[in-house]
Design a protein around this nucleic acid. Structure first.
Length: 522
RNA sequence: GCUGCUGUAGCUCAGUGGUAGAGCACUCCCUUGGUAAGGGAGAGGUCCAGAGUUCGAAUCUCUGCAGCAGCACCA
């Protein structure tokens, strides 16, 4: 690179006849470029750029000469990429680099990347002791006490939000006979991505459920349903297993065992729009509570391989589009990326390194109710097919918590923090009082640790700051005597001396989950 | 899954064809100190696993496993 830049060879543009260009690249053994030209539309002008010895097909534009690149560049990584993005094709090598106006800008960029790396949930998960993954359970999370506390806080919050908005929670089996997956169509399409279990003295083949919808339909099918029960919102924190390709695994964001905040809304066709509007409202409110003010929405329409007739797809896509309009959702189109049974909305959040992850989803499905024979009795006394709306807000707890960790770089707001307060003593004379303070905070519902170790207060402050504990409640001789506490907040430099009783009331209020603070249920 | 890279103490990482190192963390002792590291001592490793080359392998080669990056996939 440095040699090429130093040579300062001029880039020369040259227009060339199509056939001539194909012959040229063919002769040089560059068959992919020849193929590229072949596939360019006839109207396209073919241009070559020459730089010293090097001739390349390129539309341009280029710098004037290689010297213009300057010295503020860095080659970042080398990786394979499939020819034309198709895994059936050969893999070509791709070299990634970055170039900047000067060294200072390059350094700033590299520094930014390092900062982003510090937010990486895998790093923070380890540092804060939230979870780990090991070889014996690839793609599955071992949640440690603090990580599980975070998980349970999120789960309890979600459960309250769902209960408040008319969902009924259920729990369905992990192991389900293959016959059900054949009926739903998943066996045919996703068989190689399913974990299969067999028992010795039985012929049955069972699969660990990769998703919950067929099971929910089974509950819906118990007994005769009436149109009066619709929309029927059936929710489950459903544990699912999928044999994801090894290269897809990523920390806790893409795993093989995960729990969806799944729900299926069984409804009539004219209820799609109002249910979508209500869903988007709920999702937005929940994302806001978790600190995500903005998110992308993608509309994925019919894929090439799909179930259901074109007429059905027309109806499903039309209904979803109309619902988006009513809900005022701005989306970008994601052509051909829908589920095999219906179009979907994807709600996408971005991680620390700038990668996008689908979290929430809403999918309109006319196919599964048909395949699994779900029906209800309508106002007219006849049997009808319900429409199923598959929807998730967090998507999976694992992925969402991973993004949440990165969003806050481990410095969670108080309501989410796995350890909300540490009571730290300055002298051991204050130990009994510290116990009393901790007990009072605990009684008020806070997750509290107590630090009576034989260390200076400086060291304690440092330790718990590094552990991202939002509240540090310091007590020494003075506080014990006056029944006060010296409160220091994470990131703050000073402390506030409060009366113990006031402090407990105030911190309890601050630690309250946002829905409870608002009194959503009331 | 594909391509490339990586695998050494709990963590971060150094190291070398001749019996393994640092800092932090940990344990113990001293220290009771008022808001981001008080001092000292100690313990800790099948150098990812298996096979091969070699007098000798943690180091070289191969295979496997796992991780990382990108690509592909994502009900």
């Amino acid at each position: 690179m440095r040699e090429i830049v130093a040579a300062n060879a001029a880039f020369k543009r040259q227009e060339i006849d199509r056939e001539e260009a194909i012959a040229f690249f063919q002769a040089r053994g560059e068959k992919y470029k020849a193929q590229l030209i072949q596939d360019l539309p006839a109207s396209e002008t073919i241009t070559l750029y020459t730089q010293g010895e090097w001739v390349d097909l390129c539309r341009g534009a280029h710098l004037r000469a290689t010297g213009d690149v300057g010295t503020a560049f860095k080659l970042m990584k080398v990786a394979g990429a499939y020819w034309r993005g198709d895994h059936r094709n050969a893999m070509l090598s791709r070299i990634y680099g970055t170039a900047w106006r000067d060294q200072k800008e390059l350094d700033a960029y590299l520094h930014m990347l390092e900062e982003a790396e510090r937010r990486d949930h895998r790093r923070i998960g380890k540092d804060m002791g939230l979870f780990h993954i090991q070889e014996e359970a690839v793609g599955s999370v071992f949640w440690h006490p603090k990580g599980w506390k975070l998980y349970r806080t999120a789960e309890a919050y979600m459960r309250r939000r769902l209960e408040a908005t008319g969902y009924q929670e259920v729990k369905t089996p992990q192991l389900v006979d293959r016959a059900l997956w054949e009926a739903s169509g998943h066996w045919e399409k996703f068989r190689e991505h399913m974990f299969v279990a067999q028992v010795e003295d039985e012929d049955k083949v069972l699969a660990l459920k990769p998703m919950n919808c067929p099971c929910h339909v089974q509950i819906f099918r118990q007994g005769l349903r009436s149109y009066r029960e619709l929309p029927l919102r059936m929710a489950e924190f459903g544990s699912c297993h999928r044999y994801e390709p090894s290269g897809a695994l990523h920390g806790i964001m893409r795993v093989r065992a995960f729990t969806q905040d799944d729900a299926h809304i069984f409804c009539a066709e004219d209820q799609i729009a109002p249910e979508t509007v209500a869903f988007v409202e709920l999702l937005s409110s929940i994302y806001r509570d978790f600190g995500f003010e903005s998110f992308q929405v993608k509309f994925s329409d019919r894929p090439a391989v799909r179930a259901g007739t074109d007429e059905t797809w027309d109806r499903a896509e039309g209904a979803l589009k109309q619902a988006c309009a009513t809900a005022g959702v701005d989306y970008t189109l994601n052509p051909g990326e829908g589920a095999f049974y219906g179009p979907k909305l994807e709600f996408v959040l971005r991680d620390a390194i700038g990668r996008d992850w689908q979290c929430g989803t809403l999918q309109v499905d006319f196919v599964l109710p048909e395949r699994l024979d779900a029906e209800y009795v309508g106002e007219d006394g006849a049997r009808h097919r319900p429409v199923m709306l598959h929807r998730a807000i967090l998507g999976s707890f694992e992925r969402f918590l991973g993004i949440l960790i990165e969003q806050y770089a481990g410095r969670f707001p108080i309501w989410l923090a796995p350890v909300q307060a540490v009571v730290a003593t300055i002298v051991s004379d204050a130990d009994p009082y510290a116990e009393e303070v901790a007990a009072a905070l605990r009684k008020a519902g806070l997750e509290v640790r107590i630090d009576l170790t034989n260390q200076k207060i400086n060291a304690k402050v440092r330790e718990h700051s590094l552990a991202h504990v939002p509240l540090l409640v310091v007590v020494g001789r003075k506080e014990a005597e006056t029944r006060t506490v010296a409160l220091r907040r994470l990131g703050g430099q000073n402390q506030e001396v409060l009366d113990l009783v006031d402090a407990v009331a105030r911190l309890a209020a601050e630690a309250m989950a946002p829905d409870l603070a608002r009194g959503d249920l009331a």
